[in-house]
Amino acid sequence: MDLTAQLDRNRREILDDEVPEVVAARAVIEQAKGILMFVYWISAEQAFGVLRWRSQDTNTRPHHLTHTGSSEVLTHLTRAGVGA
């Protein structure tokens, strides 16, 4: 019994479901990085480091940290002393 076609369909369904979520989460992270880069005049690497640090400090996944909205990201980071 050849299950190749069924496995291919299952793989495509999983990818069709998951890829948009991954892309959306990445877009939010990139937007937050851009805000940090603009406001604090830091590099992309430094901005990602700030997001990574804050994510670990609050035990929050980066896309959840930034998903609340751009202005809240800045407020959240400012409260943590970033850019002060």
Rank of each mutant, 00 (worst) to 15 (best):
M1C: 06
M1V: 09
M1Q: 10
D2N: 12
L3C: 06
L3W: 05
A5P: 05
A5Q: 08
A5C: 00
A5F: 07
D8H: 06
D8P: 00
N10Y: 01
N10H: 02
N10E: 12
R11E: 12
R12V: 13
E13K: 11
E13N: 11
E13T: 08
I14Y: 14
I14A: 13
L15E: 13
E18H: 04
E18V: 15
V19I: 15
P20H: 08
P20N: 11
P20V: 08
E21W: 04
E21K: 13
E21N: 08
V22D: 09
A24I: 06
A25V: 03
A25G: 07
A25Y: 10
R26V: 10
R26Y: 12
R26L: 15
A27Q: 12
A27R: 15
V28L: 12
I29H: 10
I29V: 15
I29G: 09
Q31D: 15
K33I: 07
L36W: 00
L36A: 12
L36R: 03
M37P: 03
M37A: 10
M37F: 01
Y40H: 12
W41F: 12
I42W: 01
S43L: 03
S43M: 04
E45H: 01
Q46I: 01
A47Q: 03
A47V: 02
G49N: 07
G49M: 03
W53G: 03
W53V: 06
R54C: 13
R54D: 11
Q56Y: 03
D57S: 14
D57K: 10
N59T: 11
T60N: 10
T60A: 11
R61N: 12
P62H: 04
P62A: 01
H63D: 13
H63Q: 11
H64E: 13
H64V: 13
L65S: 01
T66N: 04
T66F: 05
T66V: 15
H67L: 09
T68P: 00
G69S: 07
G69W: 12
G69R: 09
S70N: 02
S70V: 09
S71E: 13
S71L: 10
S71W: 10
E72A: 05
E72T: 07
E72V: 05
L74H: 02
T75G: 00
T75I: 05
H76C: 09
T78V: 04
R79W: 01
R79M: 00
R79L: 01
A80K: 01
G83L: 00
G83V: 02
G83T: 02
